[in-house]
Amino acid sequence: MENIDIQIHKALNSEIAELSSSEIIIRSLEDGVDLVGNLYYQGIDRVVIYEKNITPAFFDLKTGLAGEILQKFTNYRLRTVIVGDFSRYSSNSLRDFILESNKGHQINFVSTLEEAINLLSPNA
């Protein structure tokens, strides 16, 4: 996981990994699988990723990339919050996808790191 800064946030007896980079971290399904594997190997089960570090193709649901990658995250029970400004996307299907995801606790989309940490905290 080169060029990725991982900051660990403590929340009760749990750790939340905040990933950030000046580059795109997830460009493809393979990048997503590698990321899940690395985090799983490190014992991390809660992660914050920034929208800016994910390829724009992820947010075009027609590509299928979001579904494929998020399925891997779900299979490994990696609770994930993506932080960003999603209002700039005009796709109704993406908006619906985000709303539906936010009803659950596995994959969520929020606008701030504080919201992400609160969602991923054990009492959330």
Rank of each mutant, 00 (worst) to 15 (best):
S90N: 15
S20G: 00
N53Q: 03
F59G: 10
Y76F: 15
I98D: 05
L39M: 09
T63D: 10
Y76M: 09
V48F: 05
H105Q: 13
F97T: 13
I4W: 01
T63A: 11
Y41I: 12
R46N: 06
N13K: 15
N3V: 10
I98R: 04
G67A: 05
I8W: 06
S28F: 04
G32H: 08
I49A: 11
I69D: 05
H9T: 13
L61A: 10
V83S: 01
Y41S: 08
H105Y: 11
L120V: 11
I8G: 01
K103E: 09
N3A: 12
F59I: 10
Y41P: 00
V36M: 03
E23R: 13
S20I: 02
E68T: 15
N75I: 04
H105G: 13
I117H: 01
I98C: 08
R27V: 05
F73Q: 03
N13W: 10
L35C: 00
L29V: 13
S101I: 12
T112R: 09
E30W: 01
K103A: 06
E115W: 06
E51H: 15
L12H: 12
K72G: 02
A116V: 02
N102G: 00
I107V: 13
L12I: 10
H9R: 12
V110I: 06
L29S: 10
A57W: 09
Y89H: 07
T74Q: 09
E51I: 11
R46T: 08
T80G: 06
D5L: 15
L70P: 02
L35I: 01
Y40M: 14
L12S: 12
N3C: 07
F73C: 08
T74M: 06
F58A: 11
N118M: 12
G104P: 05
N123T: 14
L19H: 02
F97K: 15
D5M: 14
F86S: 09
V81R: 00
F109N: 01
I98S: 00
R77C: 05
R46P: 00
F97R: 14
F97L: 08
T112D: 04
D60S: 09
G67M: 00
G84P: 06
S111N: 10
V81N: 06
S20N: 10
Q42W: 07
Y89A: 01
N108F: 06
L120P: 03
L113C: 03
F109G: 07
I8N: 10
G64A: 11
E115K: 08
T63Q: 01
K10L: 03
A124W: 13
D85A: 02
N75L: 12
E100K: 11
V47Y: 00
S93P: 01
E100W: 06
G32Q: 06
A17W: 05
H9F: 14
Q7H: 13
S93V: 15
I16A: 04
F86E: 04
E2N: 11
T63W: 06
I25Q: 02
S90Y: 09
I4A: 05
F97M: 08
R79W: 02
L61Q: 14
E30H: 01
L78C: 05
F86L: 07
V33Y: 01
I54D: 10
T80S: 14
L61C: 09
T63L: 09
